[in-house]
Nucleic acid binder design. Structure first.
Lengths: 199, 199
DNA sequence: TTTATTTCGTAACTATGGGTACGTAAGATA
DNA sequence: TATCTTACGTACCCATAGTTACGAAATAAA
């Protein structure tokens, strides 16, 4: 399974470990308040090692964001694409958003929401990826809503783009509440009322 | 009108000018990405001058937040306290939130929302003031909603605290959209749908 | 065993930012 | 004029953060 042994000194830097640590720190603390040095302390990696692997601070943040996409955004897309009625999908969204983070061993809040809030303080690569992901998320909502409209499960009154922004905003609001310490049950209540609107 | 002339060298630091400049920078750029040095360059004030006047970075941010409260939060409270029916108040909220910022010569987005998003990167004084203002805002919404409920203009179904969080979240979402460049009309549409929910 | 190759990590460099020591200027009072 | 008081601003301190120069170490090929 291992790659054919190459010449030169073997690599010892644990890329996955560094990446996961960075992700959790950016997520749990803030993407702009965690330094490379901090990641080094936490992982035992050396600074040049991290630079060799990720190129720059921007590169590491970008890689972490990519991990976050797989971990937290793909499951969201999955809910939206699943073949189920509008109400069921909305319930699934509420359940997904209000999962017990502590039990899952994952920080509260949302790294993507945090990065969007600090978009201008990020490096160019990360910043542009954030923009792409924003489009991807809004597109996913739009496809979902269009489908619901065509099935007659959702009023065609509201413009699809506005509805997508609306759902995105509710999710962002929920993530902020979570960070501010509002309890799960209350967040779920708010979300259920919010989602009841469009039907 | 002037104070009796005091002993010592007269003060030349223009407190209001510095404060307004700081406010606009924190608001338009980001409260954590504007340095004291930057404020100095923009105002011509010296660093020690600013420290003498505001005590610290935290002190200046806190003072700027206080200005922001007068400028942007009091008008919000005013809408909520005004003697008008629920629907009219909601319309006023939409109008207030989607004002033409450019025409008003004021940055887009909301300093208070930005500070809440970066709560942990702020100094202790500013951080605590942010918490207080959050409570103040939620209280204002709650009083407003309770009043509407008692007049029968709003369903008593939804818990008042959840409804307050809901309105606060809608406002936050609108501010974020504004920062991300969503056009006024679309934001207004989203808000109107969001506010239609509770009635 | 020597050489070529690749990675390692210490110890720097540079820039920035919060904060201040201190000598000086400017006015009131004596 | 001499003195007291208050504010001024240059030049600095110190910590942190992103980034890299460079010599040593480890392995495969010659």
């Amino acid at each position: 399974m291992k790659k054919a042994e190459k010449r030169g000194r073997p690599k010892t830097l644990e890329r996955e470990h560094v990446l996961q640590t960075a992700l959790m720190q950016y997520w749990g603390v803030s993407p702009t308040d965690v330094s490379i040095g901090e990641i080094c302390k936490l992982t035992g990696a050396s600074k040049p090692g991290i630079y060799r692997e990720f190129g720059s601070d921007d590169g590491l943040k970008c890689a972490a964001l990519e991990s976050y996409r797989s971990l937290a955004l793909l499951p969201l897309f999955d809910i939206l694409k699943r073949d189920q009625n509008f109400a069921a999908a909305k319930a699934a969204l509420v359940a997904f958003t209000t999962q017990d983070r502590e039990a899952l061993g994952v920080p509260s809040g949302c790294l993507f929401v945090a990065m969007r809030a600090q978009r201008d303080s990020l490096g160019s690569a990360t910043g542009e990826r954030v923009d792409q992901l924003r489009d991807e998320v809004l597109d996913a909502y739009m496809v979902w809503i269009e489908t619901a409209k065509s099935k007659g499960e959702c009023s065609a009154q509201i413009p699809t783009d506005a509805a997508a922004l609306y759902f995105d905003a509710q999710n962002g609001g929920a993530m902020r509440m979570q960070k501010e310490g509002v309890d799960k049950a209350t967040i779920a209540t708010v979300l259920r009322y919010a989602f009841k609107m469009i039907e």
